[in-house]
Design a protein around this nucleic acid. Structure first.
Lengths: 200, 200
DNA sequence: ATAATATTTAACTATTTGGTTAAATCTATT
DNA sequence: AATAGATTTAACCAAATAGTTAAATATTAT
């Protein structure tokens, strides 16, 4: 593992937890177990280090959202798969969504320019939405608005991660209990969504 | 409108958009149209001003979550009412949830201590959950886990607000289109939830 | 072994930001 | 008019933080 990648890992940890304005270069140096001068030896400044972290983080999300693996599988299967790999990604990257949302909300210009500059393609729900639309036209599933159904799925998957500290406070659960709750949601969300879209 | 309340309004605006670490006392002074010295004339320091803002913001949420107006209305009505007033609160306070979630995630200790110090009661879903449980026992609605159903409702209501910048980016919508999407969701979420809980 | 590169050290500068101060000015009340 | 309180001004201090530098040392590749 190179020093550069060690720095990136440490910076990712700190930026994802604290956000840009809350993160300190010294925190990152401490986290990587090296000194601050070295951060500047590898990266110009805080901003350029942040951009790298943001792009890498964003790219974690992209393939999950672009997940249209088997082109011809039924749309219900596509939805099942999507919920499954999306939930897994969240379990492995619990700090990711809040970080991306925050930084994007803080300064949409800066972020979109970073994405474009990098030639980074946005996740594309186009195909997914087309398939949902076609299936509902064919009467294979209920009439649903594709964008709505996708946003419903994402909301149900992501929000319990994003709002974890709030939910443990409101429902008086400890970390362990809440994690158990999160674990069983993959199946629960799938059932819920299928109940909504499947013809009775 | 007193100067003190003008400062509080301005501080709320800035803190809710930028968060504690991103907010600058100068930004608040600019927003209120007065100078920085006056902020310290009315409030000790950034931290005490922040605490006041956080508590006030938190209290905006509490009555909505405690909404159990007509004690004996059917649980389905309770859910309808909850979705309705919760969505309205979000429409009027779009920055609120992300702010509360962030600050709570940043430093749960500090926040809970501020709440307790203030003698502020937490929102309590206890009654709501009891009613849901009883109704499902009576066979009035499907068997559902009360906590799950509440978190589903909250997720569906809140997340599209929290993730607004991300969603407008991913779905290539402008502010206007996305607001239209948000407006029609109150009814949509109600339908979805009722479809899940109501006996067929 | 030599040279190039990586890393540490520690001191330093510049900038941003929170916070203070004192004097002057404005405003409302008596 | 006199007074007290509210507000401005502008300069200032202190702390935190980003960023720099140069020299010393360690590591790696040739």
């Amino acid at each position: 593992m190179t020093t550069e990648s060690k720095i990136i890992e440490a910076a990712k940890k700190v930026f994802l937890r604290k956000g840009y304005s809350g993160a300190r270069m010294q925190d990152i140096a401490d986290e990587v177990g090296m000194n601050k001068a070295l951060l500047h030896y590898y990266f110009r400044n805080k901003e350029s280090l942040f951009r790298m972290i943001f792009l890498e983080s964003f790219k974690t999300m992209t393939p999950v959202m672009n997940n249209m693996i088997s082109e011809n599988s039924p749309v219900v299967d596509k939805i099942k798969t999507f919920i499954s790999i999306y939930s897994e990604m969240l379990q492995n990257n619990p700090y990711l969504p809040l970080f991306l949302i925050n930084e994007l909300a803080q300064d949409p210009e800066r972020i979109t320019s970073a994405l474009l500059q990098n030639g980074e393609g946005l996740p594309d729900f186009g195909l997914f939405m087309d398939k949902i639309h076609e299936a509902s036209e064919r009467g294979e599933i209920n009439k649903v608005d594709p964008m709505s159904i996708i946003i419903n799925i994402i909301s149900l998957c992501v929000y319990p991660y994003v709002a974890k500290p709030m939910m443990t406070l409101l429902f008086k659960k400890d970390e362990f209990e809440y994690n158990a709750f999160l674990s069983q949601r993959k199946a629960e969300i799938t059932n819920l969504i299928l109940k909504i879209i499947e013809i009775q």
